[in-house]
Computed example of a mutant assay.
Amino acid sequence: MLNPQWLKSFATLAEVSSFTATAERLGITQAAVSQHIRHLEQQLGPLILRSKRPLELTPAGRALLDYCQQVDRAQHHLALRLSEGDVTCGEVSLISPGSIGLRLYPQLLDLQQHHPDLTIRHRFAPDNEVMDAVLLNRFEMGLMTQKPDDKRLVAQKFTEEPLELVVPAGTAATKWEDLEALGFIDHPDGQAMATRLLSRRFPGNPGVRNLPQRGFSNQISLILEPVARGLGFTVLPRFARMAFHLQDGIQVIEAGNALVDSIWLIHRAEWPLSARAQQALRWLEAKM
């Protein structure tokens, strides 16, 4: 491993192009600077052309300077990650299911606009991937639609989200035959969600699997596109419906008693959330 002090002397020399100025900036002797460069050259070969004015780097010298800059960036990034004193810089990482993610990601970007030195890293994933990502420390926080039963995790209720029956705007859906006429727009959780919700609105119905299927999409932001075009109906969590860009093309049909799911915030139990994560949570809770 290369001595950090030697690297600092070399990087400063490459910047100021003078042994004397390098020694003055670092508060060491010129002989010490020369010794540091000599140690590096013994390991890496010639780094500078001393006969040139200003000093010129060899190809090996340019490669070493690039390495020094990478080290500086890595040290800066590490300091940001470990720092608890400043919540306005560093990374906020969150992994969540699609619907709640559509609701929260724009809010996180608003927070980043207030504090541009923050980095927002968000990923959409189903519950099982959310739990694994947090357990493996790939993300500091996760959101799940089911409360996990794992002692390695802390789980607390974050918010609630109802399921909604969504039909094309201006469409009546007061009886099961209306849904049969429309047809179902399915998605990865569509059958399960529709079964849960429609059993309340239409007790004793023949079952969602007996409805004509008019389409399928695994992209949550696109599931309502065919609905807005009059091609069918679907059942989605509220936040996914709220994020859809063509609200005038759809409408929500009341489906009897509301079916409301809890959204759970999880993180590793062994250590508390970072100050940045806690700030982000307070910001999000205020926006819900």
Rank of each mutant, 00 (worst) to 15 (best):
V71L: 14
A194M: 01
I100S: 09
A228N: 09
M131E: 15
A133P: 02
D150R: 04
I100G: 09
S93Y: 10
R209H: 15
V154A: 06
Q247H: 06
Q43A: 09
R152Q: 09
K175P: 14
L273P: 07
A155W: 12
R53T: 11
S18F: 03
E270P: 00
Q107V: 14
I100P: 06
R241L: 04
T145S: 13
L94V: 06
L104G: 05
L143P: 06
S18L: 03
R209K: 15
V130T: 05
S99G: 12
R282L: 12
H36L: 09
E160N: 11
M288R: 14
L118H: 02
R214D: 06
F184L: 12
R241I: 11
L259K: 00
L102E: 13
R73E: 12
E41S: 01
L64Q: 04
G90E: 04
E177G: 03
I48M: 04
L64T: 01
K175M: 08
P59R: 06
V252P: 00
L163F: 00
Q219I: 03
G190H: 03
D178S: 08
Q30D: 15
L163G: 07
R121S: 14
G232R: 14
L231T: 10
R209V: 14
M288P: 01
E91I: 01
D178C: 07
N128G: 03
D261P: 00
Q146M: 05
A74G: 02
Y105S: 14
W176T: 07
Q35D: 08
G249S: 04
R229C: 15
I185V: 14
A23Y: 03
N210E: 09
D86P: 05
R200S: 07
S18E: 02
R25C: 11
L265V: 00
G85H: 13
E161P: 02
D127H: 03
F202E: 05
Q278C: 14
E24I: 05
P237K: 01
Q278S: 11
G232L: 11
T88Q: 07
V16D: 08
Q5E: 14
S221A: 10
K52S: 09
S217W: 00
C89M: 07
I185W: 08
Q247G: 14
V166M: 03
A240S: 04
E161K: 05
T145Q: 07
S17E: 14
R138N: 11
E129W: 05
P106Y: 10
E15P: 00
N210L: 15
N205D: 05
R53C: 04
L165E: 04
D117A: 15
F184N: 13
A21S: 03
Q219L: 01
F10H: 01
E84I: 00
T159I: 03
Q35N: 12
W264L: 10
Q112W: 13
M193Y: 15
Q219G: 00
